[in-house]
Structures are given as C-alpha cells and as structure tokens.
Design a protein around this nucleic acid. Structure first.
Length: 114
DNA sequence: CGATTGACGTACG
DNA sequence: TCGTACGCCAATC
C-alpha cells in the first residue's frame, strides 16, 4: 500500500509532522497553508487515513479552530489524545485546550516568517 | 450511479 | 452573540 495515494494528503502529513511539541494547530490553518482554505474537511479526512502512514503523524496536535478535541473520539483509546497533549505540557479541560491562543501554531506564520 | 456523511470553517440573519 | 445554512471533496451506503 502506497502511503502517497494523494499529494494533498502527503502535504498535510508533512505540515503536521512539523508541529513542535507543546503546540497545536487547526485543520483550517493547515488547509489555508496548502492553499485550500475551504477544504478544511479534507484535512480532517487525511487525518483519518493518517493511521496507516509512515512515519507516524502526530494527529493529536491537530484540533479544530476553537481548540476543541473534535478528533479525540477517533483515537485508541479516545482519552489518549488528551494524555498526549498533557504530556507535552498542554492543559486540556472538558475536551478543550486551555489557553489555546498561546499554544496555537500557525504554519503560515511560523514557516513563513523567521 | 445518486444520496448521505464527515477529525471543518465561513457567511448570513 | 448565538443559531442555521452552505461549500469542500472524498469515501461509504
């Protein structure tokens, strides 16, 4: 099985792997960075297939625009996502990232500016 | 082959 | 400020 089934998926995985520990980003931010701002759903779909991709993708660092762990239900077990985030120093409360604005990592900003 | 769903986001009222 | 509608594109029913 080729992991490069689609170039778009591969680009998403590449950006997600660039997310530093203790930081998170949103599906829309990645989609916009790739030039497909209106295809945020495809980013989420790519994450759904990321479990079979190598090297592994830190999908737990990707949340929706409000910092909610919308994809936690897709992990095994679901609470694993929150555990990983807390392990990196990110506080999570009620499935929502605390101080999300401070830990948010925007690829368009971080990778474009020095 | 047509309709529905989905780890989202923006627009509109 | 909050709730609803729509667009995106691929996979599934």
């Amino acid at each position: 099985m080729e992991n490069g089934g689609s170039v778009f998926f591969d680009m998403v995985y590449d950006v997600v792997r660039l997310i530093p520990p203790g930081r998170v980003t949103s599906y829309g931010a990645i989609a916009r960075y790739l030039g497909t701002a209106r295809s945020a759903r495809m980013v989420g779909w790519a994450m759904n297939a990321s479990h079979s991709v190598q090297p592994p993708v830190p999908a737990h660092r990707v949340v929706n625009r409000i910092g909610l762990l919308s994809g936690k239900a897709h992990f095994h077990p679901p609470e694993h996502m929150q555990i990983m985030l807390e392990s990196e120093g990110i506080s999570v409360r009620n499935d929502q990232i605390v101080n999300f604005d401070a830990v948010f990592w925007d690829p368009q900003k971080e990778l474009s500016l020095d």
